[in-house]
Design a binder for these strands. Structure first.
Lengths: 240, 240
DNA sequence: TTCATGGTTCGACCGTATCCAAACTATTTG
DNA sequence: CAAATAGTTTGGATACGGTCGAACCATGAA
């Protein structure tokens, strides 16, 4: 049975804790050096090096040399999406863990999924776009409406340019923390870019966490609000 | 780092060849007994039992007792889709294998992905629906058009009933063998049901292969054809 | 009740993947 | 050129996971 062999190969690649940590650390779409990844995984440099070798020639990571540093990154978003998918099933079937700590709370609130916004904020944004009629959803697949096209253009997204690229413009991605969909694809990436450009959010360097600036949170909520509804992203509540 | 831990847990579950074979064997959406799975994985009953225990309390499989048999199946389609996704990246980054044998050719032509049609036939069907204007795609997300609703109703699909269910009606699923999308979701499942009910196809028991009946192939091609185009599913060609 | 079949548990064996220390290579800086 | 930083390679100790035979439970048939 070849199917099983294929499965088990990448399965075992992801199956080691050290390697899994490295992969998780790269899910923000960035690239890290071998030393940083070693630190992230909690192993020494030599072992990290061995793991990285396996990951690269296993096809899950891509290596770019730069001076005396070697930067490792995930090969494509297909790999990133695979990891999110795996984390998705892990999240639904493994809530036997203790309650999430503060760091996880921040992750749950807003984080980057490879190159677009995920977490509570990502889900809220997606759902607000649907409520406001910018995206139409049949089943659970989004489609940009006329009003949506206007809105995104006003926000600074060049839809025409996005459509030219090979990457799908509009996709959804199941959120492992909330079990609801958020916006992915080229549009999702462009929105995150826009949020950063407008300084509404800042990406936490070396983690997947996305933090709202005070004014950014207000502006974001205003963008999502429709006909005087309550804000969707409140302050950093630390609920049990 | 918890994220890495979650990843590695299911990763290692999938990472063992025996377990991966079992999971792959269940991807047709059916249920098999422990003995059958042991045979499929090429291990003895005791080892199979141990693996199955890990898989079930790891949450990837579901056990239903029935008489003196114990039937194992995947827990949901989320798990099935995760496996397809993994096979997807395996397929794109691992074509250094030898050329596919005859059995794999059949798999590539038409197979069932949990409960809907995949492979060449699945992709052809999906793309034909788009060309004929039954599904509209923006980016790569499908949406049922008015014409589509009529067509599917005529085919025997009860769209209203599908919309009532919690499961998304219309989704796409990336095909590992062809690297193109095919139709998943409730509609995808209903279509496969319809194809079987009309006796256009038969599911190969105990494998994921779907075989067309002679008349079925003709009818299927007729369904897909639009304004006198060439048929999309030809005979069983055995290419090198 | 007894027998047979389908599965699980136990114990022991074996292989392999992981790990680190130390040595080695390469690239930049002084 | 020498010193320092970044990374890989090697070798050997360790441990964990997979594997099977045999014994053990459970369910259905005789």
């Amino acid at each position: 049975m070849k199917a099983g062999t294929d499965l088990s190969q990448i399965g075992s690649l992801v199956g080691d804790p050290a390697r899994a940590n490295m992969l998780a650390a790269l899910m923000n779409g960035g690239a890290l050096t071998a030393s940083e990844l070693a630190l992230e995984a909690g192993v020494t440099l030599p072992t990290a090096s061995a793991h990285l070798a396996k990951l690269t020639d296993g096809g899950l990571m891509r290596l770019t040399r730069q001076g005396r540093n070697r930067y490792y990154a995930l090969t494509d978003h297909q790999v990133a999406e695979m990891l999110e998918t795996i984390m998705g099933v892990a999240a639904v079937l493994g809530p036997k863990k203790v309650l999430p700590g503060p760091r996880d709370t921040a992750m749950r609130e807003a984080r980057v999924c490879y190159d677009h916004l995920a977490g509570e904020a990502g889900v809220s944004m997606f759902e607000a776009f649907v409520v406001r009629g910018f995206l139409r959803v049949d089943g659970d697949v989004p489609d940009i409406t006329l009003a949506g096209a206007e809105f995104f253009a006003a926000f600074g997204v060049d839809l025409a340019a996005l459509r030219k690229k090979r990457r799908p413009v509009c996709r959804t991605c199941l959120d492992w923390s909330v079990r609801r969909a958020h916006l992915a694809g080229g549009l999702g990436a462009a929105m995150l870019e826009g949020l950063i450009a407008k300084a509404w959010v800042r990406r936490d360097k070396a983690s997947r966490i996305v933090r709202f600036t005070p004014q950014g949170r207000m502006a974001f909520n205003a963008m999502l609000r429709h006909k005087g509804e309550a804000p969707v992203v409140s302050g950093t509540e630390q609920g049990p």
